[in-house]
Write a protein that binds this DNA or RNA. Structure first.
Lengths: 341, 341
DNA sequence: GTTAGCACTCCCGCTCTCTGAGTGCTAAAG
DNA sequence: CTTTAGCACTCAGAGAGCGGGAGTGCTAAC
């Protein structure tokens, strides 16, 4: 579906005006504020046409128009300007990524907070799928007589840990076990770890069966619990300044959806992912809870695999800015995770 | 200040009724619902007295009374029943602490969520002060040619990490450095670490100066940034069901206070900490942002030091239940952190 | 095709009123 | 002297009613 120039201009004007004010927009405002060189009456006619083909909606019989999902879609596909970042924003982002002395988890947390701060919507990051990681180091730290902490570092710098039970043993023996595990299980693809571990079981004394078992269980749980701490979301406070969330019920719905239901994951998976950044508007998200929400997101590379980073906000989102922000964060995160190779 | 029996009963009735309904409570309701054996008129007189001595307030000249801060204070000190936990709640808590295969950070996160779920207010945990921790293990994991991940395990099971720059070196050499650091810097009180590290500097080749420097910096930063990830807060969604947070502005104020200002820390430090659990009601918190909030919190022991766990909610809080919950969480967390000694 | 003019619609904010829950006071009863 | 019934009074909150204003669609003229 294509539109003649003037219709396109009217649609653009309605969308941008609505994004800015949040109110239904009428023909007068457009005639006055956007210099299209025609009278309100003409614009009214165009708007009636745009409504007929499904790009605009009315809230009631006689008030201004608001864009429909399809209207927004046409806008983002065809009309949206390619704005850069404001210098304030790029400054904020630069300083976030400047200090490299930061562990992965803190970085991701601070990143979602920064996404939210610059966009005024909700920021989120979905870490890379755990199936694709390998382990760089496996380490056993004694904590008490019969317990030790299993510490694992993945190739992308995540540190996972888990307390396990160990038979009483000397410091040296523990060190030996730790080294053996580390030597034999690191830098393996995950699916091979279990096999290799069972070889160890045969080689080493039966004494260590218990430990190896727990290690394998833990490694498996990292892969299986695919939700294992992969999703970072932040910026509720900023979202509350948006007029669409003046009503607490809305906020509650949104938060419970995000927190528990894995709505974000569902949305990210669905649909053919055309071009980066991806944009999902309102009901395009096939998840009922997200019918009034939009997402703008893209992926960043982490070694051979990738994660997702994006913005979740009301349908009336500043898509142009959101796209610019997501692009920037994709780039920065890719850099962070693939520094010098 | 002490109260004759009937006044105390009236105060208790007002407080409990108000906690339950959230509305100003009138003399009729009390006469009908709480069997005090006197007429509304008598209760009106008692209420007038209670207002005069500052235990009750009115929202406007002619509607029921609500408890003042001092009224709540008298209630929690003298009148509050010592309720146990509902079997539902203790069941939820039990199952949280049953599975021991969980790292510290996940446990703390899930705990604040559970506190919120059972109390319907905000749950928080403030980890032990970092000055008192010692390090159990220091470990260097190579991540690329010139970078490595420094992984540190503290005596209470926290795992901290930080990427550092290293000169190119062989696997064996890295292992050697890692072992040397670990051997020399672990199980020391933090303040001694720097001294010890500088001894190392002299002993080992100048080559490692850079690494040792970064390790010391990081260890120091863990202590100095006293806010370093010590505070866990959770349960915004649950808070939104409370009628006092029907207004988004309130929620916004609260969240920004909690997120950025360190209001909780400020409150926890202030004031003589009489008996455990501590209760701070409304303006008793000398922090302006918390003038309509109450906190119920206590401490749990972590080895030789301690952390704090508590509930943050509106002044109209179910104190009795909050106290029971905090007690339970104190106990469970103490057990978790001091398992078998 | 465009635009001015006009009748019509309907949301929104305003005031006004009414109701009901609650109070304080007074005077009678216990 | 304490308790209670009765009563006048207060005030928040819910509705009803009433413009005003922003907007529309339609028609007729340019």
């Amino acid at each position: 579906m294509t539109l003649d120039d003037r219709k396109a201009e009217v649609l653009r004007a309605v969308v941008e005006e609505h994004i800015e004010t949040g109110l239904p927009v009428g023909s007068r405002v457009i005639a006055r504020r956007y210099r299209l060189g025609v009278s309100p009456a003409t614009i009214r006619n165009e708007m009636a046409d745009l409504e007929e083909i499904g790009y605009l909606d009315k809230t009631h019989t006689s008030s201004g128009r608001i864009p429909s999902d399809r209207g927004y879609r046409f806008y983002v596909d065809e009309l949206m300007p390619n704005r850069g970042l404001s210098s304030d924003d790029s400054h904020i982002i630069e300083s976030l990524f400047r200090s490299r002395v930061k562990d992965v988890v803190s970085l991701l947390k601070e990143t979602v907070r920064t996404i939210s701060e610059t966009s005024r919507y909700l920021g989120f990051i979905l870490g890379p799928e755990s199936e694709t990681v390998t382990y760089k180091s496996i380490h056993l730290v004694p904590t008490s007589r019969e317990r030790a902490l299993l510490v694992i570092v993945t190739d992308i710098g995540f540190v996972e840990s888990c307390p396990i039970e160990v038979p009483p043993m000397s410091r040296e023996e523990m060190q030996h076990v730790s080294d053996t595990l580390s030597r034999n299980l690191t830098n393996l693809a995950v699916e091979k770890v279990a096999d290799r571990a069972y070889e160890l079981l045969r080689e080493e004394a039966h004494r260590y069966a218990r430990i190896v078992g727990q290690v394998v269980d833990f490694l498996n749980s990292l892969v299986t619990d695919s939700e294992h701490e992969r999703l970072y979301v932040g910026g509720t406070v900023n979202l509350l300044s948006q007029p669409e969330f003046r009503d607490v019920e809305r906020v509650k719905d949104l938060l419970s959806a995000v927190e528990s239901e894995g709505v974000i994951q569902a949305v990210l998976i669905k649909g053919d992912q055309d071009k980066d950044p991806f944009i999902r508007i309102g009901r395009e998200n096939e998840v009922a809870a997200a019918k009034d929400l939009s997402l703008v997101f893209g992926s960043f590379s982490v070694g051979r695999t990738e994660g997702k980073v994006g913005i979740l906000g009301p349908r009336r989102m500043d898509y142009s800015k959101a796209v610019a922000l997501v692009r920037q964060f994709e780039m920065k995160l890719s850099q962070y995770f693939s520094p010098d190779e």
